[in-house]
Design a protein around this nucleic acid. Sequence first.
DNA 1: GTGAAAGCGCTAACAC
DNA 2: GTGTTAGCGCTTTCAC
Lengths: 344, 344
Amino acid sequence: MDTAKVTIFEVAQRAGVSIKTVSRVINREPNVRDATRVRVEQAVNELNYRPDQSARNLASQKSHLIGLVYDDPAAYELPSSGYIIRLQEGALRACRASMHELLIHPCDFRQRTVASELRAFIRDTRLAGVVLAAPLSNMQKIVRAVQATGTPFVRVSPGKPVRNQPCVLTNDREASAQMVDHLASLGHRRIAFIKGDPDHEAVRHRFDGFVAGMQRNGLKVEARLVRDGDNAFATGAAQAQLLLERKLRPTAIFAANDDMAAGILRTAGKLGLSVPHGLSVAGFDDIILARQLDPNLTTIRQPLARMAESAVTMLTGNIKGERTVLETIPAALQIRESTGPVSE
Amino acid sequence: MDTAKVTIFEVAQRAGVSIKTVSRVINREPNVRDATRVRVEQAVNELNYRPDQSARNLASQKSHLIGLVYDDPAAYELPSSGYIIRLQEGALRACRASMHELLIHPCDFRQRTVASELRAFIRDTRLAGVVLAAPLSNMQKIVRAVQATGTPFVRVSPGKPVRNQPCVLTNDREASAQMVDHLASLGHRRIAFIKGDPDHEAVRHRFDGFVAGMQRNGLKVEARLVRDGDNAFATGAAQAQLLLERKLRPTAIFAANDDMAAGILRTAGKLGLSVPHGLSVAGFDDIILARQLDPNLTTIRQPLARMAESAVTMLTGNIKGERTVLETIPAALQIRESTGPVSE
DNA sequence: GTGAAAGCGCTAACAC
DNA sequence: GTGTTAGCGCTTTCAC
């Protein structure tokens, strides 16, 4: 197919310039006369020349590899696949645009050795940059380990910014508050909330947003209507059972994630309570299942793909001198069938 | 954090050997006395030396990168995320075991330029090997493009083997037949089948397996009970509607994939037909949704992770001289709630 | 604007 | 068994 590999020398020779000039053209460096540039480009095309990445990497001491680091789903249940795929989708988009390649690196934060393992990975691969996804991006032990390598990195996190740690955020707290606005506008006043896994900082913000939303709508957060959860379907189902057994039951339940919201729907079904007529249900994440449930789940969609895309762009852009250190991409309410007006 | 990078020279000096010996130790080459090896390893540890991948890549003309190539899900609906994640999971497992890194590369086979785009990718990254997943692995135009690069590759395919094309297979045809065995053992005789997307070779085998299964159980394949499909939920729902409107309706419907099977369940629900008492439903793929449906879906699970793992192992193993060219990993029936005895 | 020379840190081939 | 000598194909530095 290809004949022997064509190197920068052949190109230089054909274009009648030195290899350095070819190098300049390839790397879009300044200080090349237009005419020269054109000649070189022509030679590149004619010879079908492609620079050898290994050689560039060695000489320049960096690679064109972006690492995407996220929590290892093998340890989770499979719903996390949607989360990961969307991150990858965005990261890949940005990688293609900037001629980088994407290396995926799930890692288990429950393991003692994460930090050193991550350090080794980054060092061995000489990554051009690292994208650190939640929940890892909210664990300072891990972020610091990455930071210590000196490799550019960006946190992708629905959380709070941290000094000196480049980050792509989303306004999940505000989005939660907006969900309360939505429920309030439908006439709901007794709104229950099922919290998420307390280990996930990002998920905690959702409760904060709920509280903020209740307050700004003049509604009272009743302690009994706020339940602990752990992000699992079963917990959503169980807590919903407890909430709906009450004499004065909530007219709406907002769960910190979709899995638990799905559990709520199941319980409502079992209790013969129609949704949304007898009960409104809202979730958070917009997992694939959300649109497959009956009724479709009203939820909040984090712009994961766009966040990851933006993170990679920050990484590959920074190299050329631009500097973005913080960016916020808004989450969007997905109003669907599981929320409706109160009917009492 | 790290001080100046330590190179093979420092290690050699400290161990009192030449750099070549260090290189031998690192690459586990033979011809090193044990005592020497130990001294070198000690020096490596003391200095915390890590070989520079870029340098090795350049010198050895190959990288430690494995490319995982699959159809771009952006063009599909999101259920494919489970498929991709499982492939990645297995590939990553094997990569970690052999000290390789995984580069993911979704690509859209509907695009005219796939072949050349893939070629450029493989060439530019100097991959150590390529794993080609279905449906791409069943498209000869694409397989040949990969083959032409000279880079080792393995097809991951629930399909038929092709001469000179290393492949990890699964017995999906036989698994489909086994599903018919299962249904037949429950007393079903009028079993309908909804075919998949005719463009996907792998999905066609499922129909073949259905026919084989019917025959070996002495059952007749009724043309009217075999419906065309395209892998989509909506199609499953629509075809189920047609099938269930018949005066002599099937007691079981077997769909070529889970999405369509989910559609069947929906239709059955609408028609007030209880599953499995009034109708048995079986799918293929074991997507995440399969266990979330009510009733849980009986289906067939392709061992995707193990297939991808095996593919990467073939790739990294071959390099050391071993040669496996074909491997078959069996798919397993997942008998759940959606199939049960006929009740007529 | 352009070029010459000097590496980047390793592996390969062959000598010892 | 072990060492020596050349590169791998590029980028960098600095001269012109």
